[in-house]
Simulated assay, not measured.
Amino acid sequence: MIFRDRKEAGELLAQAILKRFDGELVDPIVVAIPRGGVVVAEPIAEKLGAPIDLVIPRKIGAPFNEEFAIGAVTEDGTVLINPTITPEFAARLGITEEYIRRKAAEEIAEIERRRKKYLSGFGRVPKEGRDVILVDDGIATGLTVKAAIASLRKEKPRRIILAVPVMPAEKVGEFKELVDDLVVLYAPVEFSAVGQFYYDFSQTSDEEVIEILKRNRMSFNL
């Protein structure tokens, strides 16, 4: 299964969510992970008549190799460490508690900068007692999505429904344990990267994210 683009993936996810829950959702809110997740979220929010909010997890890179994620952090300070990082491996890479605290603080500052940029003039949407549909354009390792789930739990939603177009088959059981419900359109055994399941996986711009959020928020006067 290959999606034309993120918009089509969002439209198909919206159909699957409506079929699965059929009017059972309680005061739903769509929470997207920028940037690509916002494009996927828009058709879902339109179908559900729901506002969009953001959760912005950021990976914590290893010393001398920022691309290798040793953990992830969200704006409320939730830090998740990559379970593959053993104490011995951390010592070899020079990963200390002080390093993690420092890098987490740097990433939290970046998260706040992005939130202000994306949602300038718009406030947060309360999630307590509501059904939260957490959306991204796909899951590979899933570390940042796990951090997002842990962060959202602190806001006391009625339930968290993770909705993604694609993820590895080996991750399905793991994520079912982390959320209240999971909607995934395609979970192949052979999986190397999210982008391989899209004809168009071009990078989403900040401007596109801002425009989607502005359209959505103005329709709700938020």
Results as ranks from 00 to 15, higher is better:
P63N: 09
P63M: 01
P63Y: 05
E66A: 13
E67K: 09
A69I: 05
I70S: 03
G71F: 08
G71C: 03
A72W: 00
T74A: 12
T74L: 04
E75I: 07
E75C: 07
E75S: 13
D76N: 14
V79L: 03
V79G: 01
I81M: 13
I81L: 13
I81Q: 07
I81D: 03
N82D: 12
N82Q: 11
P83G: 02
P83C: 03
T84S: 15
T84Q: 14
I85N: 00
T86V: 07
E88D: 11
E88R: 06
E88I: 05
E88N: 06
F89H: 08
F89M: 10
F89V: 13
A91Y: 01
R92Q: 14
R92N: 13
L93F: 05
L93V: 06
L93I: 07
G94C: 05
I95T: 01
I95H: 00
E97T: 03
E97H: 04
E98F: 00
E98K: 11
E98C: 07
E98G: 07
Y99P: 02
I100W: 05
I100S: 05
I100Y: 04
R101S: 10
R101T: 12
R102F: 00
A104E: 06
A105G: 04
A105M: 09
A105C: 08
E106K: 14
E106W: 09
E106G: 07
E107D: 11
I108C: 06
I108R: 02
A109M: 12
A109W: 00
E110M: 02
E110G: 02
E110T: 03
I111C: 00
I111P: 01
I111F: 00
I111G: 00
I111A: 00
R113E: 07
R113S: 06
R113H: 09
R114A: 00
R115G: 06
R115H: 05
K116G: 14
K117W: 13
K117I: 13
Y118N: 10
Y118H: 10
Y118K: 09
Y118S: 08
L119I: 15
L119D: 11
S120M: 09
S120I: 13
S120C: 10
S120P: 00
G121S: 13
G121K: 11
F122I: 15
F122L: 11
F122C: 11
F122G: 12
G123R: 15
R124M: 13
R124K: 15
P126G: 09
P126Y: 01
K127E: 15
K127G: 14
K127F: 11
E128C: 06
E128I: 00
